[in-house]
Design a protein around this nucleic acid. Structure first.
Lengths: 129, 129
DNA sequence: ATATCTGTTATACATTAAATATAACAATAA
DNA sequence: TTATTGTTATATTTAATGTATAACAGATAT
């Protein structure tokens, strides 16, 4: 369970923890049923308070990525319910529009964005066993 | 100069102002040389402090989107220096990876992302006179 | 049984970013 | 001259983030 945290980042620590878990699931590093470290263990590991880890875990659970079993442990739910494109657009539409807007002003062709995305898909899906 | 601000959004107001200007440039609504309202005028218009607007303007200038001429006004620089894909990836790579990671876990095909992006490109570029 | 570990809850505190509120300055344009 | 411009300075408020302790209740392992 290695976790790269950038303490100087604008992105909050608990969000970086959340992002790492999601990316881990996407890449197959974290598989369905895998157990996660306790909030205390992971907190000590990366040098943050247990509440910071807990906040990430609570968020991940609300998003359906993990299941917290009280006094048993925390486990990956990789069989996350498939959502449709509408839900996805709802969640990330604004962010994507900001990125695309700047791409247009910078004369970055849509093909470049496609390539960037394809590369990320390949990298994530290629790691799966 | 209509500007949609969501005061309940997680995104800071000054960033929303910045985003709107960039999108305006991308869509052609704001053209090279167009003048922007003064920090006081725009602040009053959308109901925020002039410092909030000033913060957005300073950021936009540092990004090369506008030019602030002291005691003259603020103007659009739509001929923003074209940046290469590497610079773009540098700036938005992490954000894109977060989005793509969740897309993979949600079984959202890359084609869906391509379509979303193409749709945004069309919408922005189609408005240009 | 008895520690130990689990997530949970509660409280308090420190730090920082974001935003507001005033006020004043200096130079330009009307 | 007068109003407007961006700019600078100071102070304050609010909320998010993160830390620090402490305790609780139930499960697990020895």
């Amino acid at each position: 369970m290695l976790l790269q945290i950038d303490f100087a980042s604008d992105r909050p620590i608990y969000m970086q923890i959340r992002d790492s878990i999601v990316t881990g699931i996407a890449s197959g590093t974290l598989k369905d049923g895998d157990s996660l470290p306790s909030v205390r263990t992971l907190g000590t590991e990366i040098g943050v308070n247990l509440h910071t880890v807990n906040k990430a875990y609570q968020l991940l659970q609300s998003e359906g990525f993990i299941e917290i079993q009280r006094r048993r442990g925390t486990f990956i739910k990789a069989d996350s319910t498939a959502k449709n494109a509408a839900d996805f657009l709802e969640k990330y539409g604004k962010t994507l529009k900001i990125i695309v807007s700047e791409a247009v002003t910078r004369r970055v062709d849509r093909a470049v964005l496609h390539q960037m995305i394809d590369h990320m898909y390949d990298e994530l899906e290629g790691t799966k066993s």
